[in-house]
Write a protein that binds this DNA or RNA. Structure first.
Lengths: 262, 262
DNA sequence: GATAACGAGG
DNA sequence: CCTCGTTATC
């Protein structure tokens, strides 16, 4: 028996909007500690990891570990039927192969329930090692989204270079080249407007903008994004979900030979 | 000679936006008592009835009954040229086959007139008997519109079931099922937010969501919608037009055999 | 032409 | 939070 009640239902709506472009089918894993998902994107290049900790729910009951396979587009269709201030409850009874999403309007006048069949999905649950990163950049998520969108109108890939002074995003395409430098800046009115760089050593890596632009669909989840970089390691683009967990996106850097012969 | 002056011209704009998706050509009937229209939708499944009473106009002159055939898309194109706070005058001289729409800006700085050829349209004017309905639901029009839109992302038809406690909208589709229950609620801040059920006996009927979604184009006309249901009778979805009349949509329920073999 | 996504205003 | 008006896209 599973019953998870989330008062801020809009959070779940945003989570699904942020990952459904990348992942079509995935298993949602429920345990006593939380609600999580890990899945490769359909072209097996990027990886999404979602965690919503049990403490973030108003009620969290999960009697035994459960892996529920769902088509994320269908989940998204159902969640779009929830109002932004609805309370969302996810239910699954033992011995059934369905999940129910229940939406309660704030004044309890409207109660909706949506039932969906679960699917069997093979998933290799990859252990993601905690790595030490050469550089970690924290910046406003809207600014990162704007940069990725802007650069993708010039080129297909971005070189992200971090030094102590700042982070540089560079691209090149048929029509020309572009460089956007964001300087470290801790002296701002609000901490979420800061750009902060924690650097062990300078690093410069190349990524496909197409995937980064998908990642930025998570921008509504957090004012801030954290980008963790190391040579030879996948970049981690993390959006924290207040009081509950995170959505993390992983993407392997392009190696230089690939850049020359795309 | 016909001359109708309507200070709140935006009303007429909204009326046309609400019915033009459903009906392409129709006769506008003018008599001493008011301005009305009755037409089937192009697939002959739904019926639209409009009434604007003479008292709602600032000037209303109609010397003899007149039936003016128009293409509603063309009328809508002209009315889109009127500002939302323009005063609209509809004119037709005897012995001509044209109608003139005149738009005056509030400060009288701009006066526009648009003349349109009338068309001959066969129309069987159906007498719509005043029926007793088993259940009449009054609810906020925006809420009804939201429900119809949400459910149509899951299924094609909706079962509307009314009991004393509330009204339930249910659908089923490939990805799952959905039920939305609205409880009767008279204790709200504003009367137009109430959901009120007048029920003689419980009723449950099935309708095509496609048509209901067209009906909800009339939502801007009224904060409130009234849904009148009886077994074997077409549902009536009514949007009252303040001080003037109404737009009513009629749609026959699907019978169960049709549900099974669509 | 209609819907979706975005940004501004109430 | 919702509504509107606009734009972009199919």
């Amino acid at each position: 028996m599973l019953e998870l009640r989330l008062v801020q239902g809009s959070l779940l709506k945003k989570v699904l909007e942020s990952i459904k472009e990348l992942v079509t089918d995935a298993n949602f894993d429920c345990s006593a500690t939380g609600f999580s998902l890990q899945a490769m994107d359909s072209s097996h290049v990027a990886l999404v990891a979602l965690l919503l900790r049990a403490e973030g729910f108003e009620h969290y009951r999960c009697d035994r570990n459960l892996s529920m396979g769902m088509n994320l587009n269908n989940v998204s269709k159902m969640l779009r039927c929830a109002g932004n201030d609805d309370i969302i409850t996810i239910k699954a009874d033992d011995g059934t192969d369905t999940v129910t999403f229940m939406f309660e309007s704030p004044n309890q006048d409207k109660i909706a329930d949506f039932e969906m069949k679960l699917m069997d999905i093979d998933s290799e649950h990859l252990g993601i090692p905690d790595a030490e990163y050469q550089a970690i950049v924290r910046m406003p998520s809207a600014e990162f989204a704007r940069i990725c969108k802007d650069l993708s109108s010039i080129g297909d890939t971005v070189i992200i270079s971090v030094t102590k002074e700042g982070v540089k995003f560079s691209t090149a395409g048929d029509i020309g080249t572009a460089n956007i430098v964001c300087r470290q800046n801790k002296t701002v009115d609000k901490p979420e407007q800061a750009t902060i760089i924690e650097m062990q050593e300078p690093v410069s890596l190349t990524f496909a903008l197409r995937y980064l632009n998908s990642f930025t669909k998570a921008t509504p989840l957090s004012e801030t994004v954290t980008i963790s970089l190391s040579s030879e390691l996948p970049v981690v683009v993390e959006y924290k979900i207040a009081e509950m967990g995170y959505v993390r996106f992983y993407l392997a850097p392009k190696i230089e030979d690939e850049e020359m012969n795309p």
